[in-house]
Design a protein around this nucleic acid. Structure first.
Length: 468
RNA sequence: GGCGCCGUAGCCAAGCGGCAAGGCAGGAGUUUGCAAAACUCUGAUCGGCGGUUCGAAUCCGCCCGGCGCCUCCA
């Protein structure tokens, strides 16, 4: 088994080899918790959820850390607007995030470090950088990193220091020695949250928290460092710079993995532009799994467009997959692999699935294997009905889908409460049909359809489900 | 201006040197009281122009178009 994984650092797909056999240390950048998360965040979290699930499926033990940036200017400002403390705002948003990602069937991270809980480590890290002469503090109290002291500054984002200055759009802080120097510690202004430090009371700069967390929780060197492609520069570049300056100079992460951006109306979805759909809105539409299906339908590295039309198409596509296992009852699944063409088809699907996923987590291709397998299942069911072999195949399909985080279960929505009554109506309708009272039977079906209940007739009888 | 990514059927999207996966939509059929679902069949020479090669959507060059990063951002 060889897994290939593309690495932003080299720009190539590389063979995946962990630092410690059988164990993966994965750190994924999470949100800055100042306002509600949008589905671009969800997409990123899902992409890494799938990578994690697959690595686990392949037998790795995965330690998955996802941080929260719970202190920064935007949090302070928004909290002020809302009239609550930055602490409170961050806490609310974190709880929201954890609840929402759970509803999106994203596995909870192994650890959720937060910037404010790493201040000691951050201070140690900064101190050692100052000692080594790669960081300096200025009269105002801010501490900066000296980028020109790091030989390969720009190695991740593939740029040169000189080019960056030329294209710099920011006003350069007078205090900085070099325009690209970045802040490690920010002096607090009046009324802002502050932590004591050897310099001035203040708070950590953005990039340093991740370095500290990796240092403290993951042993300083990790296998996979992930996040959105918008974090490559400056965030990840600076992380590398400060971490590798502080430690032995060895690589912070073996594989840098970045997901493409989610686009809305042709532009990157973003909070600051207000160009977004929130996770809450998605969940309110009942679109959690549909969205996951969309995410799986394009490669994680590519940008993905979100729109009404693609959403609808995804909904139907997912329905098709669900349809293949809709009547599955796990209690009818034989305990061992039957000797049957369906079992062969299952093996083949699994093989294709693994080949696709081994190649840099090619979920669109993995999905294709699932669709092919689903068709075989449908065909067999049309022919031979619900045999134990069919159940075996369906269970296999569902298990493979689960590796992608798809549950493939029919939505058990509001129908639950009214289920006995719907059953009754369907019963009566069956009697009407056998009495050839088709007009009445059709009325029942149509009127239930108006209420979101879909009746389907099969040779074996009628079934219903909630749909739209 | 610099760096990176992308341009494949009506739409979404794999493939990355050897006769173009899959999904949605559409068309024809099978099944069905009808409907739905399902099943079968059905569509592209891969932005443009050159080049490398026995052979290119896949490699190289140029051009056109789009996106991202270079400031906070998953």
């Amino acid at each position: 088994m060889t897994i290939l994984i593309s690495n932003t650092m080299s720009g190539k797909k590389e063979t995946f080899e962990t630092i410690e056999p059988g164990k993966v240390r994965m750190y994924v950048c999470g949100p800055t918790v100042y306002s509600e998360a949008h589905i671009g965040h969800a997409m990123s979290a899902m992409a890494f959820d799938v990578i994690r699930r697959y690595l686990e499926y392949r037998g790795y033990q995965v330690i998955h850390a996802q941080n929260f940036t719970d202190i920064d200017d935007k949090i302070i400002n928004r909290a002020r607007d809302l009239g609550i403390s930055p602490d409170q705002l961050a806490e609310d948003m974190i709880l929201e995030w954890i609840a929402q990602t759970a509803r999106l069937n994203i596995k909870p991270a192994t650890i959720y470090p937060r910037a404010t809980q790493e201040v000691d480590t951050i201070i140690e890290l900064i101190s050692s950088l100052i000692e080594k002469g790669t960081a300096y503090h200025v009269p105002g109290g801010d501490v900066y990193f000296r980028v020109d002291r790091f030989e390969n500054y720009g190695k991740l984002s593939h740029r040169k220091l000189d080019d960056m200055i030329a294209g710099s759009r920011i006003d350069v802080d007078e205090n900085k020695e070099h325009p690209m120097d970045f802040v490690l510690w920010k002096a607090a202004k009046e009324g802002e949250p502050a932590w004591e430090s050897p310099w001035v009371p203040g708070r950590p700069g953005w990039h340093i928290e991740c370095s500290a967390m990796i240092q403290r929780h993951l042993g300083g060197q990790i296998d996979i460092h992930g996040g959105g492609s918008d974090l490559i520069f400056p965030h990840h570049e600076n992380e590398i710079t400060q971490s590798e300056s502080a430690n032995c100079g060895c690589a912070l992460a073996r594989y840098w993995v970045h997901n493409g951006m989610l686009e809305l109306r042709g532009q990157k979805m973003s909070k600051s532009e207000g160009n977004l759909v929130t996770i809450r809105e998605l969940l309110d539409m009942g679109g959690g799994e549909i969205f996951r299906f969309m995410v799986l339908g394009s490669h994680y590295r590519s940008p993905m467009a979100f729109g009404e039309d693609t959403y609808e198409a995804a909904k139907r596509g997912l329905d098709r997959l669900i349809g293949a296992v809709r009547d599955l009852d796990r209690r009818e699944v034989p305990p061992s692999r039957p000797d049957h063409p369906l079992a062969d088809a299952a093996d083949e699907a699994r093989a294709k699935f693994e080949t696709a996923m081994d190649d840099d987590f090619n979920t669109p291709e993995a999905l294709a294997a699932l669709f092919d397998f689903g068709r075989i299942i449908n065909r067999e069911r049309d022919q031979d009905g619900a045999t134990p072999e069919l159940r075996y195949a369906q269970a296999q399909l569902q298990d493979l889908a689960a590796v992608l985080g798809l549950k493939l279960r029919k939505p058990e929505t509001t129908a639950i409460d009214s289920a006995p009554f719907i059953d009754l109506l369907v019963d009566i309708r069956t009697q009407l049909r056998s009495a050839k009272q088709f007009e009445l039977a059709d009325q029942v079906r149509d009127q239930l359809a108006e209420r979101g209940i879909i009746i389907e007739d099969f040779p074996s009888g009628s079934s219903w489900r909630a749909g739209s």
